[in-house]
Nucleic acid binder design. Sequence first.
DNA 1: CGGATAGGTATTGCATGCAATTTTTCATTA
DNA 2: TAATGAAAAATTGCATGCAATACCTATCCG
Lengths: 253, 253
Amino acid sequence: MSAEDGRSSQMLRAVLQLRERLLAGGFTPGERVAELTLAPLLGVSRTPLRLALGVLEHEGLLRMLPSGGFVVRDFTTADIEDAIELRGVLEGTAARMAAERWKDARALQPMQAAVTAMDALADAGMTDFAGYVAQNEQFHAALLALAASPMLKRALAQATALPFASPSAFVRAQGEQAESQRVLVIAQDQHRCILDAISKHEGARAEALAREHARLARRNLDAALRNRAMLGAVPGAALLRPMQEDIAHARSA
Amino acid sequence: MSAEDGRSSQMLRAVLQLRERLLAGGFTPGERVAELTLAPLLGVSRTPLRLALGVLEHEGLLRMLPSGGFVVRDFTTADIEDAIELRGVLEGTAARMAAERWKDARALQPMQAAVTAMDALADAGMTDFAGYVAQNEQFHAALLALAASPMLKRALAQATALPFASPSAFVRAQGEQAESQRVLVIAQDQHRCILDAISKHEGARAEALAREHARLARRNLDAALRNRAMLGAVPGAALLRPMQEDIAHARSA
DNA sequence: CGGATAGGTATTGCATGCAATTTTTCATTA
DNA sequence: TAATGAAAAATTGCATGCAATACCTATCCG
């Protein structure tokens, strides 16, 4: 996408292009991705493409067949719910570690800054939605940095590699809902409370709050499943197993 | 090393061989692993070797250089502690999910069987240590199966890929300590309590117990760090970043 | 008419050659 | 002596050809 793609490695270019196509719904779940088909499509040779397929398999977007080759993975709503729950558990751990470990109060500043910035954006009427998303990501990055645990960072990176498990996956979709204002008020209060708990070394409280904070995304998922238009704004929604939606629809009368 | 290696892919063979060498201390942390050096050593070509290096990087045993190539990763004691803590968090989540989700009591049977088997082995005087380790792994596998969450399974697989983070990493080393009997009694009681909590749908209790159970490994780590002979029994100990004592020792030499 | 089997096609996995880049080494100079 | 620079050596990343394997199809037999 960016001009720099040409400079970076062929493999990275393949990863970026293929990931984008996957999330945009360029493939149907379960479909086999053939190297010889993809290579000319992405403008790379088979060797770096193979590497890229391995990366995407590790991310969870592809699945390797025992007989060789890869297929596009599909996700059930239960998968997404568990992925969100898992992120909550890991971010909860990050919050607890942050609360337990920080020494110098200045370390809390980045997190404080993100909260303040989001407050300002909320007061301004939430016109700059992209800015809010960016600050939200800043908050989560600051949280992870405070935990000061490379191992946890790695685990969280893997857990949020699935697009719908990312902290800002459904925030974008929220912008299209009338209810979004209320949800964002709640989310922002949780941000404040998490920061408060961390600043007071209240590890258990910080953990519980961060977990519940992630569950906001779960609520948004449920809302999105009832609203086709909203689901379109969620990246990777195309990988949802089709039948599952209808079953959930019929069941949730 | 098994006879099947010849039948499986070159890449898998490279992964197994290289992983074994890494854990056995065949490389020094920070050392660069050159493809052209390794390829003839492992008896594979560069192409599958490259794939294998990627796998081991995902596992965390290697680190990719920005300029290309891989180096052997080193771990601090803090890394190991966090890896164990992380496993505790994830197994705690598995225990909680297991407690919350099971419907048919027969699903608990594998876990019950593992606990019973370990009880029997303990009553028999703990002569069959390998058997105990196997049953311990059975217990953890049953726990993960009960959680019924592919996402969590994936995360736990990644977290326990690091050798010293595995549930049975220090159990082996325990066999060489006089204190081991007491520790194993505690561990076995925790197994029983976790099963009890799960069987009663006591999610929070099951989670807390599983976390603390993992922390037994942390205690064993501390013991191992004070006992060089014991540390030798821990796979991957060779990847520990030399401690400050050792640096001081080397200086004086 | 259904199932099995053989043949053909397509696809993967692997080896190797080549170019580009990095790293190292060594000589030179301030 | 330390820093600088260039040249050489080594290493990676990539493309492509080939063999082995899996998949699909069509035919044959029960």
